[in-house]
């Protein structure tokens, strides 16, 4: 079965939408149908899922802590115990 060039380009552009669940029923079926016959798009779906999964793994990195100096600039302004009345 031939692979429609339009479907292929469209699918490649919408892999993130697909993984995110942003496609409505008909576009989703369009991509599903195309990916059944297209190795590149089938791999693209797996790759996009792996990307999102790996990105989630970047969160909560071990050993990274805010510097102890993070509140240092409050000292001069905050020494009186009162924030600026009008703010920054």
């Amino acid at each position: 079965m031939g692979i429609g060039r339009d479907d292929h380009q469209w699918s490649q552009r919408h892999l993130s939408h697909y993984v995110e669940g942003d496609l409505r029923v008909r576009p989703r079926h369009r991509l599903d149908r195309h990916a059944r016959d297209c190795v590149d798009c089938w791999r693209g779906i797996r790759a996009m899922r792996a990307l999102v999964y790996a990105a989630q793994g970047l969160d909560g990195l071990a050993g990274v802590r805010a510097p102890a100096t993070i509140f240092d600039r409050l000292r001069p302004a905050g020494a009186s115990g009162s924030p600026s009345p009008r703010g920054a």
Binding site: S16, G44, A47
Partner: peptide
């Protein structure tokens, strides 16, 4: 925001390559 997110993912995917993503992602 969604538009930016999708663009970002497509660029990152292109930078890393499907092979590396799929292999490491299992």
């Amino acid at each position: 925001f969604k538009s930016r997110l999708h663009q970002a993912r497509l660029r990152v995917r292109a930078a890393i390559g499907d092979e590396a993503l799929v292999t490491a992602g299992g």
